[in-house]
């Protein structure tokens, strides 16, 4: 997929675990795993907003476009 999710990098920078982020943004760890592994087909603005709020970052820090 051309859109990469750099959630792992952001979590590592903040020394935060996946389950902690999932808990804070109110989604299941299974769904967060789908997002991290790039299996997700779409992401809701509300989820993106929650992630940005918790990690104190911009959407561009999480999403990256890589041409195929």
């Amino acid at each position: 997929m051309a859109i990469l999710i750099n959630l792992d990098i952001q979590l590592a920078k903040r020394d935060m675990k996946s389950y902690e982020l999932a808990e804070q943004i109110g989604i299941t760890t299974a769904n967060l795993s789908i997002l991290k592994t790039g299996k997700a087909r779409a992401i809701r603005f509300s989820t993106l907003e929650a992630i940005c709020k918790v990690l104190d970052c911009q959407p561009a820090d999480i999403l990256e476009y890589v041409p195929d």
């Binding site: 989604i27 769904n31 967060l32 789908i34 997002l35 299996k39 997700a40 087909r41 779409a42 992401i43 809701r44 989820t47």
Partner: peptide, 8 residues
Amino acid sequence: KNDSELTI
């Protein structure tokens, strides 16, 4: 349904 399930 698959699309809906994979929307996070």
